[in-house]
Nucleic acid binder design. Structure first.
Lengths: 147, 147
DNA sequence: TACTTGTCAGGAATTATTCTTAACTAATAA
DNA sequence: TTATTAGTTAAGAATAATTCCTGACAAGTA
């Protein structure tokens, strides 16, 4: 199925007008596994849509996060990066390569949710949680693999 | 015991010259529970040491993080904040007030460490991990309490 | 049609952070 | 002591990510 069409549906569902810019930006973020920054998204969309401005990319990403269409992740240098995945998942931050990897694990989620249920936190409405694992790639050329 | 003197000791132990600026900045971060930003640290130290420049605060905090004397935490707006606590602990980020709270829990640490031991992650040297809990204060005027 | 609202490109403005430079300090060597 | 060196700092300029502003345009409505 066409990713642009799927983006259109999601936009409409979220109550947003499905403009060309929005469809392209949403499809780009959702297709990427690299947790791109706004700048990076701009570079990507520019290839086929050279008129989309950086400002539009910024404000559109903002809107998407607000509407819950994508998530924002912070790199350790403070730069905002975006994640098309919406499920509760965790991230591995690689100190030497600045990579951010998704790390999904149902068991871990259960573990933490169970913990948080027991540990009553008063006066706080928990929205989400995620485990941030910070580490260093042993071999920079190889990928990180989770078993 | 004098916090400045304790700061001096830590600086020397870390192999850094114990200058007035460094002592004051280290003592300030370690005394604060608010996870101050560089700007905020600058405001604090200025009160008694008006000549310390913002640039010095930035580079000194950098040095401290590098030497492991303090930790850096990112607020959800991407601003760098600093934490005098060195033990493995977690953070609660309050979306509506921008507060960052420490959240230490040995049981949780054990839980996660145990999990990570079982889950082999290949080609990654884990440096640290922390659980980020994002939520909204129910009553903004009251504190968050953990039981 | 006229009116309203929302969206966008382009560029200016802002802000956290880093960089540069020259002055200063402390430690060491002559 | 004086000279030398390396390290530290204040001040302000420069940078880079992000936000703001404005006028043009588009779509939807009466």
């Amino acid at each position: 199925m066409n990713t642009l069409e799927s983006a259109r549906e999601k936009l409409v569902q979220a109550g947003l007008k499905a403009t060309q810019q929005r469809m392209v930006i949403l499809a780009t973020v959702q297709a990427s596994k690299a947790h791109p920054s706004a700048e990076h998204v701009h570079e990507s969309v520019r290839v086929n849509n050279p008129s989309i401005s950086l400002g539009t990319v910024y404000s559109t990403l903002d809107t998407f996060v607000e509407k819950g269409l994508i998530q924002m992740v912070l790199a350790k240098n403070g730069i905002k990066r975006y994640d098309g995945r919406l499920d509760n998942h965790n991230h591995i931050h690689c100190v030497n390569t600045n990579e951010i990897l998704d790390f999904e694990d149902l068991e871990l989620n259960e573990l933490v949710m169970d913990f948080l249920r027991r540990k009553k936190i008063e006066n706080l409405d928990i929205r989400k949680f995620s485990l941030h694992i910070q580490g260093e790639k042993v071999d920079v050329k190889k990928n990180i693999k989770i078993h």
